[in-house]
Each structure stands twice: as C-alpha cells, then as structure tokens.
Design a protein around this nucleic acid. Sequence first.
DNA 1: AATCTGTCCGCAAGAGTTGCAGATTAGCAA
DNA 2: TTGCTAATCTGCAACTCTTGCGGACAGATT
Lengths: 142, 142
Amino acid sequence: MSANIILFVRSPEQLTIAFRNAGLKVTPQRQLLFRLLHDNSTHPTAESLFTVASSEMPGISLRTVYQTLTDLADMGELTSIDFGSGASHFDPNVAHHHHAVCDTCGAIHDVYVDDAPRLTGLDGFSVEHSHIVYRGTCAACS
Amino acid sequence: MSANIILFVRSPEQLTIAFRNAGLKVTPQRQLLFRLLHDNSTHPTAESLFTVASSEMPGISLRTVYQTLTDLADMGELTSIDFGSGASHFDPNVAHHHHAVCDTCGAIHDVYVDDAPRLTGLDGFSVEHSHIVYRGTCAACS
DNA sequence: AATCTGTCCGCAAGAGTTGCAGATTAGCAA
DNA sequence: TTGCTAATCTGCAACTCTTGCGGACAGATT
Ligand SMILES: [Mn+2]
Ligand SMILES: [Mn+2]
Ligand SMILES: [Zn+2]
Ligand SMILES: [Zn+2]
C-alpha cells in the first residue's frame, strides 16, 4: 500500500515564518523559490530550479538559488541528495523515504518501502539512517 | 555472520589477460594500478589511488589513473560509486553488495545484507538493481 | 630503419559549486 | 514615513573533480 502518503513539505507561508524566526529576511527571490519547492517531487537540481525561477523572475541569480537551497538545507527544510548525475538534487520532502531512479530519463521517484534490513557483520558501526536507491526503467520509458 | 566472504576481485594476472584480450596494452602504469586495486576494499578515489601510485612510481600521471579506471569500469572490472563526497569512489569488488559510510572519518565498508525490500507502489518501474547506503559512525570513531 | 598504433603526460577546458565584494533592500526604529 | 543598518543579491572569480586534446613516447610490424 502506498496510498495516503503524507508529504512533509512546508508551505511557503510556513517557510516564511521559519525564515523570519531564524533572523533571515524573506525576499521576493526566496518567496518564489519557496513556492517552486512546495509540493515539488521532481527532485530538482539548482540549475533546473534556476531555469524555472528565471522564467518567472528574469534576472534572478543562480547564486541566489544555491544560497537559498543551502539555507533551507541548514534549517532542515530540505535535503541534498547526490545520485551520481553530476549535480546535487534537492528534496523538500523530508519524510523518511527512498528513491527509484530511471536510468533512461533520469526521473527520480519517491519510494515508500519497508526499511532496509538491519546492518549485520559490522560490529560497532552505529547506523544513523539508511537510504535505498533503486535503479531501472520507469513506466514511461518502458 | 560475515565470515568467509568471497571478494570477486580479479588478480593483476587476470586483469592483464583481460586487457590483452580487449586489445589494450599492459603498461607498467597499468600493472601498478592492477596491483594497487587487487583486494583493495578501501573504495579509493582517483586522487587517493594516484597518491599511493606516485610513491611507487614517481611521475605517473593523474590523467593515467583516471584513464585506467575508466578502462576497468568499461570492462566491468570495477564500478564507480558516488557517495556525495565530491569525488567518485572506485570499487573493484563487483559482487553485489551494499555500503556503510562513516560520517565522521569517511570510511566506506562493504556490507552484505539481505536485498532491499521489493519495490512497491511504483507500477511499471522495472528495477535493475538496488543499492543500500547506511550512514552513521564506524567502530573506530565511536 | 621507417611506420604504425596505442599509451602517457601536461595542460586546458568543462561542469558544478562556493567565496568574495560592491550595490541593493528588508525589517525595524524613530 | 523616513532613515538606518545588517542581511541579501548579483556577477564574477576561484575552486574541485573530471575529461578533451595533442605532442611525445614505446612497443610491435614491415
Ligand atoms: Mn524524495
Ligand atoms: Mn564496496
Ligand atoms: Zn524514465
Ligand atoms: Zn569512522
């Protein structure tokens, strides 16, 4: 069963409050990015976010996109994941989950499965968390 | 239980034959790298391999290390894995396995556990393979 | 010996990301 | 409102990792 999945993505309004509470200013650039990230399950790169943001706010800087993503990551509002594509992908879904990556089109899907098996055979290693990456071909590419 | 793990790492002699069969030459630089990679479970980066290789063969080029690693990867004798550290790590252990990464010292340990749970909830996605990354603190760093 | 083929190496360039500094602005206080 | 000030934005340079390129080089073939 994968129905009724709750995505723990903060709304732009919530992020606005969080930023103000952290002593950070809420600029038009940041508001735009908050909006573009809300309920965004595409796992965008900084560059891809920048492209979308630019169409709505010409002149916004790629540097600002990076900066805002870093701020959000520092606040725990999103995570940065490296799937080996060269660029980091950003995930505003901070709920514990895993990923399925299509080797054909590069699409990254959220996956909710049972946790990975307990780590055995490495005495003394204390596991903080585990991440499963499934690779293969997505439905659209089959 | 983690005893009696068989590491499927080809010997320098086997790699020599494989290279000749592929029409590639076996140079002193390549022989050295074959040797450094044999039974190497440290998951080195190109740079770290280069450092070790340089101490034994001063003058060897980082470019040659990259080239040889690429050749080996193309032949399926090793895999390249990105753990998000910036540099790619190379793994001459081509047996199906997973990894535990220490967030403190960066050590990467091979892990043999049950496979990840079957992917559900993504109809139409055909899984080629899965990779589990455990993160935490290794015994030495605790 | 001349040639041919593949390799090695240094260097430049490409991709992604971060540091920096001057111009600009949000948020607050008067 | 107005003005102040610290935070932010932006463009650019620099940095890391990796790959492209071209000449030097080495081993094999004629
Ligand atoms: Mn996700
Ligand atoms: Mn391994
Ligand atoms: Zn696809
Ligand atoms: Zn450690």
